[in-house]
Design a protein around this nucleic acid. Structure first.
Length: 770
DNA sequence: AAGATCAAGCTTTTT
DNA sequence: GCTTGATCTT
């Protein structure tokens, strides 16, 4: 009963956590550093609302970004309250909650409440049609590109009329028109894409005070997880919903904002106090995850960031092991070494107790780094799992199967029809499809209806007609069974996959991956059991994309740094700390210097703070690039930003295998990074300094200013260049500076073109041969 | 209409 | 270097 029993869960919190949990009214910003019990604070707060204020669970809006986070929150609230949390309908991801709201108010967006949510695949397919209709050269202007642009616009809550003209020179100046064409097509197809889920609701809220009032009245308390990841649309959505009661509690960590490139605005968190007057800010700074050295290394690295609110993490746990730094000859030997080290750790080495494979993770900047590890681990038989690989529901066979279900359910689903009409082969090629498509457009009917008409008119080649007729007949039968409901939905699904010939198609395929795909189909059918009916399944499938398949066996985890956020492991390997790869040259080239570099640094911070007891950082002198050829590498500038007193430099493992004499292009002598140099510090060797001369030069401004001038983004940072410097531009590639004029720089590129470019679009070329 | 061959692309990722 | 999409060939 509320308040009667002194809540025991409060005793388990430290004083900051407790303040954050007990300050229930008004805006609260909870700055929670890595490993400081953020989720605990958030879930306890929910429990406390329910317990002490007697707030009904359905009056609480709790938003996360991923389904996984939502699920975890739900379970943990349940644990605190002892399983009494009956239904928190408003606990979920931004998208799933907004989708539910949109279903209630669909007509206000010109939709029917049973609209379909398109994923990226469908989206691109639709855009291709739009481009084709507009007669635009798709080679010059690929649909994927447009999809990305529209996505970014929607992230910023820009409807077609709000997109600034300067954004629109794509597609012969017709980008905005194409965007609005696309929105029209979506509406007629009764579809939305992911961005629309938020955007439509923001618009509805802005235009219909009564609707907004309704939600504001109902949702008394708002909680937001990972606030630093919110984009503008999500921010507006929240601000509208919080506008009346102002009971909003956002939890986030500006230092872990690593999704700027997909629209997240760190500015949201930095601006919170302005947006919500009279807000209270609490900081969680006691770290419960990592040992002292690891925490110190991470803190020191992130301290180079300038655009941050600033926190000082501390821990009560002992210093533990220092972060280990090791160099390798190339990316292959790096993988070999990591494999060997894992086997040693597993048995227990370096005075440590044996560590289970489940407790070890390898975190990388990019996915293509993964392969070298997979190759090696397969060879030595080290079990591993790749986290965040191609998702189950995005696999071709799964999407095909889903398209069959969708079409059987609603024959007007043109996108589904288009996807599977000729898989398996039914003799419907481009020409036949064009015929159907044209007929549908002329008569204003669906593709299914159009094919029916054409068949009865005796069109098509005889074989095609027979096949198509049969398929349409099947569709009708399946539809009747589904809607009649006399048969279990799992059986219907099996029937569809059988009779359509789709399952048979994979069963008889000789492709190497065919058996695996067949397995996935079986897995799909199995997962159908968890749903009440096919419609329920389809509703969930577009938004709830994850589907973990746990095999009982112990495995090492392989994933990207991005995928690792929110996770923790006793032992963490961070390979590939080389300039150009990490920080990623491409990331640095897309935005002007500082902003992007700081995001990369945060990525490093996220990586190190995943480690509880041991953290290995490594780099190689040569690496196989994405395109297969070998490139020489220079250690990451972030290595230089690690605090020496918290780092152990391991002797280069390869020194004993390859001597400098054997490998003439051995570079460590030049780049430094030798434990035994006179300088005493393996990091700060003369060679390493030389390799970084340019950067150090720039960084010699007083204080600990970050690399690249330390100015605010877009300040005249041409000063970081001088004539003759080798630079990189995202579009034009590598080049050399001819002339500098304020922030304009004239560059001759290796494609032998010459351009004057704002310095902010250039980055120093640190890799690649001179 | 389907198989075969060629060129282009390629950071990070959720919903 | 490998996958994907577009074009060519049969």
């Amino acid at each position: 009963m509320p308040g009667r029993e002194q809540a025991r869960y409060l005793d388990e919190l430290n004083s900051e956590q407790r303040s954050a949990v007990e300050t229930l009214d008004g805006p609260v910003l909870l700055l929670a550093g890595a490993g400081t019990g953020k989720t605990r604070a958030l879930t306890t707060r929910i429990a406390h609302l329910i317990n002490s204020r007697d707030v009904r669970p359905y009056r609480i809006l709790a938003v996360t970004f991923t389904n996984k986070a939502a699920r975890e929150m739900k379970t943990r609230v349940g644990q605190i309250l002892g399983e009494v949390v009956e239904g928190m309908p408003w606990l979920g991801t931004f998208h799933s909650i907004s989708a539910r709201m949109l279903r209630y108010n669909a007509e206000l967006a010109g939709l029917k409440s049973n609209f379909t949510i398109l994923d990226t695949d469908d989206q691109v397919r639709l855009l291709k049609q739009v481009l084709q209709a507009a007669d635009i050269d798709q080679k010059m202007f690929p649909a994927r590109h447009l999809a990305g642009m529209i996505d970014r616009w929607k992230n910023r809550a820009w409807t077609p009329d709000k997109v600034p003209d300067r954004e629109a020179d794509w597609g012969r100046g017709r980008a905005i028109k194409l965007y609005s064409d696309y929105q029209d097509r979506l509406k007629t197809l009764n579809c939305v894409d992911f961005g629309d889920l938020l955007l439509h609701m923001v618009q509805i809220f802005s235009k219909n005070q009564a609707i907004l009032d309704g939600y504001c009245r109902r949702l008394k308390y708002i909680l937001v997880d990972e606030y630093q990841d919110a984009n503008v649309a999500q921010y507006l959505w929240l601000r509208l919903l919080a506008s009346q009661r102002q009971n909003i509690c956002c939890v986030g960590d500006d230092d872990q904002s690593i999704y700027g490139w997909r629209g997240a605005e760190v500015g949201n968190i930095l601006r919170f106090e302005k947006d919500f007057p009279n807000s209270k800010v609490f900081r969680l700074e006691q770290n419960y995850r990592s040992t002292g050295h690891i925490l110190a290394a991470a803190s020191h690295l992130i301290s180079f960031n300038r655009n941050r609110l600033g926190k000082t993490l501390w821990t009560q746990s002992d210093q533990g092991e220092k972060v280990r730094l090791i160099s390798h000859y190339d990316s292959v030997s790096e993988a070999v070494w990591v494999g060997d080290e894992i086997e040693a750790i597993q048995k227990g080495s370096r005075g440590r107790a044996p560590v289970a494979l489940d407790d070890i993770a390898i975190l990388q900047r990019t996915t293509f780094q993964m392969r070298q590890f997979e190759d090696r681990f397969l060879r030595i038989g080290l079990p591993y799992r790749v986290i965040g690989g191609p998702r189950f529901y995005e696999r071709r066979e799964i999407r095909d199967a889903i398209a069959y279900f969708r079409l059987a359910m609603s024959p007007a689903d043109n996108l589904a029809f288009e996807r599977i009409i000729n898989t398996p082969r039914r003799g419907i090629g481009d020409k036949s499809f064009q015929m159907i498509f044209n007929r549908a457009r002329e008569a204003g009917i669906s593709l299914v209806e159009a094919s029916g008409d054409l068949v009865s008119e005796g069109q098509f080649a005889a074989k095609t007609r027979r096949e198509l007729d049969r398929f349409l007949g099947d569709l009708e039968v399946w539809g009747r069974i589904i809607h009649g409901g006399e048969k279990n939905h799992v059986e219907v699904a099996e029937q569809i996959l059988d009779e359509s010939g789709y399952a048979g198609h994979w069963a008889s395929s000789k492709a190497v991956d065919a058996p695996g795909r067949l397995d996935n189909l079986k897995e799909l059918v199995r997962s159908l059991h968890e749903f009440e009916n096919l419609q329920g399944f389809l509703d969930h499938v577009s938004l709830v994309m994850d589907h973990d398949q746990e095999t009982g066996e112990e495995r090492v985890s392989l994933m990207t740094l991005h995928a690792a956020k929110g996770l923790e492991f006793p032992v963490v390997f961070l390979p590939g700390w080389e300039d150009g790869l990490f920080p990623s040259l491409r990331a640095l080239a897309t935005k002007s210097g500082n902003e992007a570099l700081e995001e990369e640094r945060r990525l490093g911070y996220v990586g190190i703070t995943r480690a509880e007891k041991a953290c290995y950082i490594s780099f190689a002198s040569r690496r196989r690039a994405i395109s297969g050829e070998w490139t020489d590498c220079v250690p990451s500038r972030f290595i230089d930003e690690l605090p020496e007193e918290h780092v152990d430099i391991l002797p280069s493992h390869d020194a004993s295998i390859f001597g400098a004499a054997v490998m003439p292009d051995w570079r460590f002598g030049e780049t430094g990074f030798r434990q035994d140099t006179a300088a005493g510090s393996g990091i700060n060797t003369p060679g390493w300094r030389r390799a970084n001369a340019r950067r150090n030069l720039v960084r010699s401004t007083p204080g600990r200013s970050p690399a690249f001038g330390g100015g605010q983004p877009n300040l005249g940072d041409a000063t970081r260049f001088s004539v003759g410097d080798r630079v990189f531009h995202q579009k034009f590639g590598y080049g050399r500076i001819l002339q500098i004029d304020h922030d304009k720089v004239r560059v001759r590129f290796e494609t032998s073109s010459e351009w004057s470019i704002a310095a902010s679009y250039l980055s120093p070329a640190t890799t690649g041969g001179e």
